[in-house]
Nucleic acid binder design. Structure first.
Lengths: 222, 222
DNA sequence: AGCTTCATGAGAGTTAACTCTCACGAAGCT
DNA sequence: AGCTTCGTGAGAGTTAACTCTCATGAAGCT
């Protein structure tokens, strides 16, 4: 109920025409706003449930968003897509996430920070992330593409290497990024906590260590 | 039908008493054999379906095993448990898997071999492994414990380090094993193929490289 | 031979993830 | 104001993962 109360003012904007599209002289009036509000309400509801660390189901999200389950499926092909978008919205951009370490050009320092950022965020939205991985891993068919938070983060953290290692040995840089894609990941976090039995903090620390080691080794061999 | 045909001869052994157990003078007769055969039939059926890379469902396994779905659930609490056991049976022991490299005491060589072995096997039973991960990752409650193939393999591959690094710096060895638990894993394989877009062969090669680098770094810093 | 035990099958029931159809009703257009 | 468009809800239908109960019939025991 309070989910979309702050969006209601947008309802007034109905009827204005958009000629910027060139072709489309049709006025995408309040209908578009309505759809936008519905979509937002669903994502907000999903995010709400995610935070509560409760089990996320489509019926629960629909009920919380005050829409029917059918409508939820009209906006998102499946639960995983919904959760993916809901999680995406909580993520800062790579630049924002790595701002505190922007002054440093040491890739080892930067990648360690990126690892901690990513894993702590994953831990916070554990339930949803687990659900997304669970759903994505079973079929590599369409729409199974997971968001590449890690890639943006890794690229940004390793930016200082573009001019050095990247120019000297592009293949080595590519390999480093693949190494890190495995380590700086939700899967790594869950492996360390679920299988190795580490506490969340220890798991994050362990992954940071691994990321540092790999990065340092790549830099050193140049 | 042909699944358990080769076990039928054991049916004749009913009625003989087992006094070797000391306490148990009760004769665990054909009933035990019957249960054993049913259990085996179910696992065999699961394994059959797994190889076919088709989607593994409990109804399908039950049908293939010629038992009712209810019976399947009597033997295994859930699909994941069944698949876990079915996959386990296809795995050689760490010693067997690493036999070709037993002559070498270079942990780097050994871990690279272990990585390749594990990942190629995972790739072969991809469908089942994905299903197990999918089911295991969503709840960390009971019975979610995945088989630790990787741990046995890693321990065995790193055995040569027990007397050296292990004695000098136990914490470093433990960290190395945690690093490798993340890298020598099905999750790593799927990350590399699904997210990084690598071919299975390239993914295995990449993981091997990562494992080598991490291990070499740990050995070097001693 | 007869009684008991128990593995199994059959089937109903529940929940979630979807899919599809139909009808309502408000928004938008003429 | 009246017609049309279309977002939405309601509800039925399907499949799978489970859970539970009840009846059957063969194995095992006395």
């Amino acid at each position: 109920m309070q989910v979309n109360s702050h969006n209601e003012s947008e309802l007034d904007l109905c009827g204005r025409a958009v000629e910027t599209d060139g072709m489309t002289i049709q006025a995408p009036a309040g209908r578009e706003n309505q759809k936008q509000r519905t979509r937002t309400a669903i994502i907000d509801a999903a995010r709400e449930i995610i935070r509560g660390s409760a089990e996320v189901t489509m019926p629960a999200v629909a009920k919380a968003a005050l829409v029917s389950e059918a409508t939820a499926y009209r906006y998102f092909p499946d639960l995983v897509s919904l959760l993916r978008e809901a999680i995406d919205g909580t993520f800062p951009s790579p630049a924002e996430a790595l701002a505190p370490v922007e002054e440093s050009d040491d890739p080892v320092v930067r990648i360690a920070f990126a690892t901690e950022r990513l894993l702590r965020h994953v831990q916070m939205y554990q339930g949803a992330v687990r659900a997304v991985i669970s759903g994505s891993i079973v079929r590599s068919d369409s729409a199974a593409i997971r968001p590449g938070h890690r890639f943006g983060l890794i690229d940004h953290a390793l930016a200082p290497l573009d001019a050095t290692l990247g120019r000297r040995d592009p293949a080595a840089l590519r390999q480093l990024k693949q190494d890190l894609a495995v380590i700086v990941s939700a899967e790594a976090l869950f492996t360390l906590t679920d299988l190795c039995g580490l506490s969340p903090d220890d798991a994050v620390a362990s992954a940071m260590h691994t990321a540092r080691t790999i990065t340092a080794a790549a830099v050193a061999s140049s």
